[in-house]
């Protein structure tokens, strides 16, 4: 079973880390971005990877945990035109985009498929007890559903918490 990860920032990189620790054997990670210093407080990257591609950096970090993990990488911007083909060979897709319109796009484009989607909405702010799980059609959505990162500061433990819950849903679905 191949798990796709759309965007490997705070959510995607941490979900991937949990999957490596759980010895998930096959993932596809997709992002076009490079590691920045400002990412290091909450994303699964190191200081010496600043300026490097997130895909290659994450592959290195995941292999340091679980060397047998097969990691397919796409250094690509995900668009409405390519999202279906990028993830067509994945049974499950983890959504880790920054922008709400991309979250909506991924969910609408993959809604009519047999794929399971695990998405995030509301990962900012310091309150940890507001994190919930909602189920919509073939999608689980995790977060507090209100804290936009443009209006609330990101609190790294909350990002990690949402990512851990999302990874838990992926692992649970894989067992079904």
């Amino acid at each position: 079973m191949k798990i796709g990860i759309a965007g490997i920032g705070g959510i995607g990189s941490n979900v991937a880390r949990h999957l490596a620790q759980a010895k998930v054997s096959l993932v596809k990670i997709v992002d076009f971005d490079c590691v920045e210093t400002a990412n290091l407080n909450r994303q699964f990257y190191r200081t010496d990877q600043v300026g490097c591609k997130k895909t290659i950096s994450l592959e290195t970090n995941l292999h340091a945990i679980y060397p047998k993990m097969v990691i397919e990488m796409k250094d690509k911007k995900i668009t409405p035109e390519n999202v279906v083909s990028i993830f067509q060979d994945c049974s499950m897709v983890v959504e880790g985009f920054d922008h709400p319109h991309l979250k909506k796009m991924l969910m609408e484009k993959l809604a009519g498929t047999d794929k399971k989607i695990v998405s995030a909405s509301g990962i900012a702010g310091r309150d940890l007890d507001t994190v919930k799980i909602k189920k919509l059609a073939n999608c689980h959505i995790v977060g507090d559903f209100s804290s936009d990162q443009d209006k609330h500061a990101l609190f790294p433990p909350k990002v990690a918490l949402v990512a851990a819950v999302m990874a838990g849903i992926v692992l649970h679905q894989m067992e079904k």
Partner: peptide, 24 residues
Amino acid sequence: QEKWESTWIKDGDEIELLSFVGGG
């Protein structure tokens, strides 16, 4: 979204509207 305009609401429909917020 392209089908919203042609989707008529009926009595008893169960509808969820999820408004995504940014952050990932």
